[in-house]
Simulated assay, not measured.
Amino acid sequence: MILGMPWWIFFIVLLIFLSGYMAFRAMRAEKQLEQQFIEREGNIYIQRMEEEKQRKTDKQHREISG
Rank of each mutant, 00 (worst) to 15 (best):
M1F: 12
M1V: 09
I2C: 12
I2H: 04
I2L: 11
L3T: 11
L3M: 05
G4C: 01
G4R: 04
M5D: 15
M5N: 06
M5Q: 15
M5K: 13
P6H: 01
P6F: 07
W7Q: 13
W7H: 14
W8Q: 05
I9T: 12
I9P: 00
I9H: 03
I9R: 10
F10K: 14
F10T: 00
F10D: 02
F11G: 06
F11E: 07
I12A: 05
I12G: 04
I12C: 00
I12P: 00
V13Y: 02
V13S: 08
V13T: 10
V13F: 09
L15C: 05
L15R: 02
L15V: 08
L15W: 05
L15S: 01
I16P: 00
I16H: 02
I16R: 00
F17W: 14
L18N: 02
L18M: 11
L18K: 05
G20I: 15
G20M: 06
G20Y: 06
Y21S: 15
M22Q: 11
M22V: 13
A23V: 02
A23Q: 08
F24E: 11
F24L: 12
F24S: 01
F24D: 15
R25Q: 08
R25H: 15
R25D: 09
A26M: 05
A26L: 10
M27A: 05
R28D: 09
K31W: 15
K31Y: 10
L33M: 11
E34P: 03
Q35L: 05
Q35P: 03
Q35C: 07
Q35W: 11
Q36T: 15
Q36D: 03
Q36F: 07
Q36Y: 03
F37S: 10
I38F: 06
E39D: 13
E39W: 10
E39C: 08
R40F: 12
R40L: 07
R40P: 00
R40A: 15
R40V: 05
E41A: 09
E41R: 10
E41F: 01
E41N: 02
G42C: 05
N43H: 10
N43T: 01
N43I: 00
N43L: 13
I44T: 06
I44K: 03
Y45S: 04
I46N: 02
I46P: 00
I46D: 09
I46L: 07
Q47R: 08
Q47C: 05
R48A: 12
M49S: 14
M49N: 12
E50I: 07
E52R: 00
K53V: 04
Q54C: 07
R55A: 02
R55W: 15
R55T: 03
R55G: 04
K56I: 04
T57N: 07
T57D: 10
T57G: 01
T57S: 13
T57R: 03
D58T: 04
D58Q: 06
K59H: 14
Q60S: 15
Q60N: 06
Q60A: 14
H61N: 11
H61M: 10
R62T: 14
E63A: 13
E63N: 07
I64V: 15
I64Q: 13
S65G: 01
S65K: 08
S65N: 11
G66F: 13
